[in-house]
Each structure stands twice: as C-alpha cells, then as structure tokens.
Design a protein around this nucleic acid. Structure first.
Lengths: 210, 210
DNA sequence: CGCATGTATCACCATTCGGTGACATTGCAA
DNA sequence: TTGCAATGTCACCGAATGGTGATACATGCG
C-alpha cells in the first residue's frame, strides 16, 4: 500500500500548462471571493497545486497580479464591444459606452472585483490594474469614435469620468445586492438607471447630432 | 521588585470611559487602515486595552461596527451642512449636495473608508453602515429642500444616485492618489470636477429656477 | 548506462488572527 | 469587616497566513 502507484510528483502537465492553470485559478479566486481572500494559499488551493509553484513561475503574488493585468485591457475592450451601428453623435457614443460598461461590470465579476480592489485598497499592486482598465475603456472609445468630437465649451474628460464613476458605483452596489442612495437595483431599477444615463448624457452633450 | 507598585489590573477609567476609548480607537483604526486591517486585535492595540473588553462591552466586532453606525448618519449630515443661503432651485440643491459630498469624502477618512468597505466587501456588517450613510444624505436634503421639487418627467432618484455614485467614486480615487478615467485629481482636477458637476446637474435639471 | 536539469510536492517556520477561560485587582454594599 | 460583582489583564487555543528548504520523481543528454 505504500508503493507509489500513480506518481504524485514529477512533471504531469508541464510548466506552460501549470502556469495557465494557476493563472486561471487566480482569476477565478479573485472574481469569486474578492481581493481580501486573494492570497498565495487560496490560489494554490484553487489551482490544485503547491503554492511553491506560484513563487517559482510568477515570483509571488505580485507577478501573478501583473500577469492578470496584462490581459485586462483587452478583456475590457472586448467586453464592451458588440456588433451594432456606429454612434451618430458624441452623446450617443458616450451613452453606449456607459450602458455597456454597466452591463460589463454586472456580468464580469473579475473586472468588477478589480475595480473594487482599486478603490478599497490602493497599492502598488493595483496601479497597473487600474491603468489597464482605463486603457481598455479608451481603446474602445478610440475604436468607435470615428470623427465624432465633444461639443465645445464642455470639459468632456471630467464629465465622462463622473459618469463612468457613477455607473461603476451602481454596478458594484447592484452586485452586492444593496440599494444605493435609495435606488433598488432590481430589473426595474436597472431600467431606470439606463434611462437616467440617457437623460444625463443628452442633457450635457445635447441630443442633436453633433 | 515583584510587589505590584502601581496596579495594572482593576478599574481605572471605568466601563463608560473605556467603552468610549475603544469606540474612538475603532473609528481611528478604520479611518486610517481600512476595513482589511480592521479586527479585534488591531482595535484593542489602538485602544491600549485587552481585546476581551471588546467582547464584553460590545459583543464583538459586530456590535462595535453597529455602535459606529449609530453615529454615522448624523456625522454625514453635519459634515454636509454649512452656513449659507438656501438653494434657489432644485438644480442648485443637488449641485450643493454633490459638491459638499465630494469635500466631505475627501476630508473624512472614516466616511470614505466605510463607503469603500460597502463596495468591496458587502456583508451583514456593512448593511447598517450603508443605511446610515444614505439616511445622512437624505436628512440633509430634507433639511434644505424647502418646497423645491424636481422637474417633472425626470426620474430624479435614479439621476441623483448616478451622480452621487460618480462623486463618491472620484473622491475615493482622489484619496487613493490615483487618476480616474484619465482625470488626474490634483487641485486643478478637483476644480474641473466641480465644473463638471455643475454642467451635468444643470444639463438635466435645467438652469431655470424651478 | 549515469547524471544533471526541470518539475512538483511535502514539511516546516514564525506570525497573526478570532475567540475563550482563568485570574488579579478594585470598590461598593451588606 | 466580609463578601461580591465589576473591571482589567494574561495565557492559551486552533486555524490560517506568507514564505522557505529539502525531497521525490521524470525526462533528456552525454
């Protein structure tokens, strides 16, 4: 009974396979349990391997987070992209961005958890993550903008930052199942949110096709 | 040398004094280090007493958080209040609310950390905190509103939730020293933020004195 | 064959955490 | 004075954390 029937040590899937497995487990752990539960032990458990491999292949948690960050910008851009006609105005562009960002955050737990992480526990670790998320947004805008421009006399970056923050906040609260500022985020509340987005965007940027 | 010169045990400041000391230490710990570092040991260390007293006087962390929550609504309402003329329009009311909320969150680390806590790690513990924060906002609005009402045809609760969320998000990012959505939150960025708030509010609610 | 290199795991370390029981001291009250 | 409840501290527990050798196994190369 003591003889090693099936070898438990030694290479089985190889470095490349195991690295990918660890990376997937890290994403899943972070997406499911948030950054507070995100550690070497938890990831190793989820990956079904020894934590030593995380140090060997990624140089610790830092490297693992950096690896997640490298694919994050594309994940955001892809998550925002849907096949439909290009926006006819700057207002329509921003409205589409906000609506899809809301949907993306509600659906993609990883991106949502990362957003929450940046806010609650900013650290050198989260800086590249924040940059990657921002880059993903900007990439989508660059892809879709065409030659649309914001109306003159309005500080579009500041206005957009505010709106993006609002959407992000509501999406985080929705995922938490908590009402926010008196707004309950059930399906009906979601519809109201989208209508409010439209009202705000067209209120500042105008409904005309500029 | 073994005789107890100055007694280290036994009552010194009494239950009331010690409870207050613990409560203060809890607020400071949460404000300084955030919810991730907020635990029985950390609070007891900061209060300079044994953690057993936290269990005795508050019934554990839960009760301590609840005690913090009880004073939170008033803290928010007071933090928003400043002596100045009542708003002349619904738009001015909301604009004042948003500007002051931004300032409050930037200055009051405790309120800010609690807001971040609700987002990053929602739990039964944070529910009363979220409710208290929301109640503080609503109390201020009730005090200031007079008989101003939102323009018809606009879902004011949803719009306001979005704007409040945006302000909150920017304030959290500012405290973290991180740019948000391309907006750098130095003094100049803060000025731009306030201008963007005004533009958005008057865009949806109109500049007229309704 | 023999041996080095890469792969994967186990065992262990010090530290911290939340939580509890036992004990010393004080002050009030009978 | 005696007794007792309240106050405050200490010591300990099991569990979990991040981190580091040492070891077993597999493979390829000479």
């Amino acid at each position: 009974m003591t003889q090693p029937k099936s070898s438990t040590k030694g290479p089985r899937i190889g470095r490349a396979g195991m690295s990918q497995q660890i990376l997937d487990a890290a994403r899943e752990t972070l997406a499911q349990d948030g950054f507070a539960a995100f550690g070497v032990n938890a990831v190793a458990r989820a990956a079904g391997c020894d934590k030593q491999l995380i140090y060997r292949y990624f140089g610790g948690l830092d490297g693992l987070v950096a690896a997640i960050g490298e694919t994050l910008a594309d994940r955001v851009t892809d998550g925002l992209t849907q096949p439909d006609p290009p926006p006819a105005s700057y207002a329509a562009l921003i409205e589409a961005l906000l609506r899809r960002l809301f949907d993306l955050l509600v659906q993609d737990a990883l991106v949502r958890r990362i957003a929450a992480w940046e806010l609650a526990d900013p650290s050198p670790l989260t800086l590249p993550l924040a940059a990657a998320r921002s880059a993903g947004l900007q990439q989508w805008v660059a892809d879709m903008r065409g030659n649309l421009a914001a109306p003159a006399g309005i500080d579009a970056p500041a206005v957009n930052a505010l709106l993006i923050g609002g959407v992000q906040q509501l999406a985080l609260a929705a995922a938490a199942g908590q009402p926010f500022a008196g707004l309950v985020l059930d399906p009906a509340g979601t519809a109201r949110t989208q209508a409010a987005i439209a009202a705000l965007v067209h209120g500042v940027y105008g409904s005309a096709k500029n």
